[in-house]
Design a protein around this nucleic acid. Sequence first.
DNA 1: GTCTATAACCCGATAGAC
DNA 2: GTCTATCGGGTTATAGAC
Lengths: 193, 193
Amino acid sequence: MVTPRPGSRAEQRLRTEARILDAAAQMFLTAGYERTTIRAVASAAGVDAGLVMHYFGSKQELFQRVTHASPAQPLGGTPEQVSEQILAILADSLTSEPVQSLAVLRSMLTHPEATQVAQEGAARYRAQISRSIPAADADTRAALVSAIMIGVIVSRHLLKNGGLTDATPQQIVGLLRPCLRSLTLADPSPSSS
Amino acid sequence: MVTPRPGSRAEQRLRTEARILDAAAQMFLTAGYERTTIRAVASAAGVDAGLVMHYFGSKQELFQRVTHASPAQPLGGTPEQVSEQILAILADSLTSEPVQSLAVLRSMLTHPEATQVAQEGAARYRAQISRSIPAADADTRAALVSAIMIGVIVSRHLLKNGGLTDATPQQIVGLLRPCLRSLTLADPSPSSS
DNA sequence: GTCTATAACCCGATAGAC
DNA sequence: GTCTATCGGGTTATAGAC
C-alpha cells in the first residue's frame, strides 16, 4: 500500500477511510453486526452515511474489511512447548485482544459470515494443535483446547463474567496450565469413565 | 396450570400458544434474537403475526416466555464429588441441551436481555462451584470452570466445531476430567509463572 | 471527495373486521 | 379466537447535487 503525498485528495481519503474503519470496528465489537448501523458508524466517524456506502459498497463488505486480518501465528515443537505457546497466546489475548478478533467473536453466534470466519480460524488453530499432540484422539483434544480458549476469552472480554474480569492474566494462565498440559500431553493415568 | 376441557376455546388457545412457543424457541435458537421475526414465527406456527402479538404482547416478552425456565440444580459435597457432578451436567448438556438454554446462549453476545440472563445463570453457577472449592482463589477457579463449560457447549452445539461435534460425550468428559479436577481441587504442585 | 434526498424494503406494533 | 389492513419507524442502498 503506497502512501500518497500529504494534503492530496488520496491522502485525505485514506484518513477518513481509516476513521470509518476504526469507528466500525468499535461498533461491531460492542454492538454486534445486526445492531450496528451504517448511520451510527458514519456519525461516530464524523462523516455521512452515504460516504460509508460509497467507500465500502455494503455493510457486509465493511464488516469484512474490519475483520479480515489476523493470520494466525504458527505453533511447533514438543507437546510441552506447544502447551506453553498456547498459554502465552492466551495471556496475550487476556491482556489485550485485538478489536478485529473480538468483533468476530461478538457476532460469531448470530451473523453467518462471522460464524464462518470464527469456524475457519478455530479450524486452523485446531489443526496446528492437533498436529503436535501425540495421541489417537488428538483432534478431540485440540478441539477442547480451542473451545476452552474461546470460552475464557468470551467470558472475560464479552460477557465480563466477574471472576474472570478481575483476575490477572498470570493468575488465569497459572490455573489453566494443568488443564492444557493434561490435554496436549497424553495423560499416563487416565480415569476410567 | 389447569387443563381446560378438550374442544373448548381455552384449550384451543393453549394449543396454538404452545405451537407458537415451539416455533419461537426453534427460531430464536437457530437465528438468534435479532434475526428472528414475529412474522416468521407466526408463519412457522401456522398462524398470523397479529395473533402472536395478541398473545405475548411484544417480541421481548415472547423471548422471555421461551427462555425463562431452567432453575439450575444445586451442587454439593466434597470437591471431588462436585467435580463429578459438574462432569455429569456437562455430559447431559452435550447429549441434549434444552432449547431454552441454547436460545439464551445463541443470543447472549448480541442481545442485552440474553446477556443478562446468561450472566445471571453463570453467576449462580459460579457461586455454587466457588462455595465448594477449598482455595483462596476459589472465585477465579469457579469462573474458569464456568468459562470452560460455556466454551465447550457453544463449540459443540452452536459453532459446530468439527472435533467436538463428532466426539461422544463420554470421550469429552473423560478428557476434561483432569482439567476440572485441577481446578476444583487446589493443586498441590502449582507451577510458578 | 463529501453530503443531501430519497427510493425500496422490512420490521414491530396497533386497530378493527369477521 | 383468528386474521386483514395499516401505521410509524428503522434500515440499506442509490442517484445526484455541491
